[in-house]
Simulated scan of single mutants.
Amino acid sequence: MARILLVDDDSDIREVLRDHLESAGHSVVEAQNGKVGMVVLGQNPCDLVITDVYMPDGDGIEFITRLHEQAEDLPIIAMSGGGSHDFGLHMLAVTSVLGARAILAKPFNCDQLLQTVDRVLQH
């Protein structure tokens, strides 16, 4: 299975997502923002990055842009629940232009998460 970097400022969300990903056989490392995510990724090569778009101290859009510049082939899944529904969807669309291969609008369920991960990893 895949080694996944999970980046989200909400520790409860990271815990729930990590549990689902690990129960599906994936190995997960975590970071609370994009700045820490870059450090963690430098120490732990990964097969996939799942990142929130709205985070303090390391905005997800900046993080996705840096990741795509430094590791263009590294698949990224962007997720967001911030802002209004339309604004959140707009920002997720923007992240796909910046390099994310898939988007997840919060809230999403375990099946949606695992299906998206499988689809991105098989691409």
Rank of each mutant, 00 (worst) to 15 (best):
Asp47Pro: 06
Leu17Lys: 07
Ile50Val: 15
Val117Leu: 02
Gly34Arg: 07
Gln112Leu: 11
Gln122Tyr: 02
His68Arg: 04
Gly88Glu: 11
Asp111Tyr: 05
Leu41Ser: 00
Asn33Ile: 03
Asp8Ala: 01
Gln115Tyr: 05
Lys106Gln: 14
Val117Tyr: 08
Leu114Phe: 08
Arg14Gly: 10
Ile4Asp: 02
Val94Asn: 10
Phe63Ile: 07
Cys46Gly: 00
Gln115Arg: 13
Val39Asn: 02
Gly99Ile: 12
Ser96Phe: 00
His90Tyr: 15
Gln32Cys: 10
Asn109Glu: 13
Gly34Gln: 00
Phe63His: 09
Leu89Trp: 10
Thr95Trp: 05
Phe87His: 14
Arg101Asp: 12
Ala31Trp: 01
Leu74Gln: 07
Gly34His: 01
Pro56Asp: 09
Gln32Pro: 07
Ala93Gln: 13
Gly60Leu: 05
Ala93Ile: 04
Asp9Glu: 01
Asp111Met: 12
Thr116Lys: 09
Leu21Cys: 11
Gly99Ala: 10
Leu74Asn: 02
Pro56Val: 05
Thr95Glu: 10
Ala31Gln: 03
Arg119Thr: 14
Glu69His: 14
Leu98Pro: 04
Asp12Ile: 11
Gln115Ala: 15
Asn33Pro: 01
Tyr54Asp: 06
Glu22Gln: 15
Val28Lys: 02
Phe87Trp: 01
Val120Leu: 10
Met55Cys: 12
Gly82Asp: 14
Val29Asn: 05
Phe63Asn: 03
Asn109Cys: 13
Val39Gln: 13
Leu67Lys: 00
Gly88Val: 05
Ala105Ile: 06
Leu74Ser: 05
Met79Gln: 08
Leu17Arg: 06
Val7Gln: 04
Arg66Cys: 09
Gly83Pro: 04
Leu48Arg: 01
Val117Arg: 03
Ile13Leu: 14
Thr65His: 13
Asp86Gln: 14
Thr65Gly: 08
Val49Asp: 00
Ile4Arg: 06
Lys35Ser: 06
Pro45Phe: 03
Val97Tyr: 12
Asp73Pro: 00
